[in-house]
Simulated scan of single mutants.
Amino acid sequence: MQEAAIEVQGLGVHFRRNRRGRRSFKDMFAGASRRSRPGEFWALRDVSFTVQPGESIGVVGRNGQGKSTLLRLVAGVLLPDEGSVAVNGGVAPLIELTGGFVGDLTVRENVRLTAGLHGMSKAEVASRYDDMIAFAELEEFQETPYKHLSNGMKVRLAFSVVSQLNEPILLVDEVLAVGDKAFRDKCYQRIDELLAEGRTLFFVSHNERDLRRFCKRGLYLNKGSLVLDAGINEVLDRYNADSGTR
């Protein structure tokens, strides 16, 4: 039997309301109780699902229901308080795209640095560099410091670099909501190409059109719980009904 791309079992994570950040290291080291303490809430609780290689999953729910937290747990940015997340294969994180770029470095230097940090070898960076710059439409800005780029240019550059990674799992969080129409169309085409190669897609979005276009299966989160795991059309219909949008 083929190994799952993502396997989540009994997942739970909680945060503090009264200050920024998670529980302190002292609390975790001391084995603090898993019950919510005053000022804490469970962002996710008892969430379980499995994603097979090549599946395209859309995660839906209102703001504050745990979608982005789930994505960060899968990405390994957060650690769970309960349960487990197993990711079998590298991830290409199309989330918080402009994070990790260095303002004083040039576009050229940032491409080499960011691609390298994501595991791309020097030879791979060299062979794909021109394509990344062309996709981002930054041929004339290669020696420009990153901090002098417009926000649109920064997003184009980041998407171009991350979407060139060879990782089998794509983690996407509303990235397609940014940029002008022409660039969004390029992003759509690029994701279509990656899915045609058999990549696994884990996609958090409020855009129903994008969800129906890219995803076959959906996960509906509400108040940190997994309400429904089914075909994307069934999940969106249930979500819309619960939200009173239909």
Rank of each mutant, 00 (worst) to 15 (best):
N88T: 12
V59M: 07
G231N: 13
I133E: 07
P93T: 03
K216C: 13
F159Q: 05
G61P: 05
S163N: 09
D131L: 12
F25K: 15
V204G: 01
M153L: 03
D210I: 08
F25V: 14
R22I: 15
V74N: 01
L171V: 05
E40W: 00
I133D: 08
D210K: 11
R238G: 00
V60E: 04
A196P: 00
H14K: 15
K26A: 15
L97Y: 11
F141C: 06
L157M: 02
E143Y: 13
K181M: 14
A158N: 03
R184D: 01
E140R: 13
G12S: 11
I6W: 00
R19C: 12
R199F: 11
A230P: 00
R108T: 09
V60W: 11
G89R: 08
F15T: 03
R37M: 15
A182D: 12
P53I: 06
C187H: 05
G224Q: 02
D180Y: 12
E40L: 04
I6P: 00
R17P: 04
S68A: 08
L219F: 09
Q52T: 07
A158P: 08
G218C: 00
A134W: 01
D192V: 03
L211T: 06
R20I: 13
P80S: 03
G89K: 00
S163A: 13
F135Y: 10
D131K: 13
V87D: 06
A5W: 05
D210C: 11
S225C: 14
R238Y: 09
A86E: 11
Q2H: 14
V102W: 11
S150D: 06
E197G: 12
F49G: 04
A230I: 08
L94M: 12
L219M: 10
G90D: 09
D27M: 11
R62K: 14
V204Q: 00
N110R: 04
A241H: 14
I133Q: 08
L236W: 06
L171H: 01
L79I: 15
M120V: 05
G12H: 09
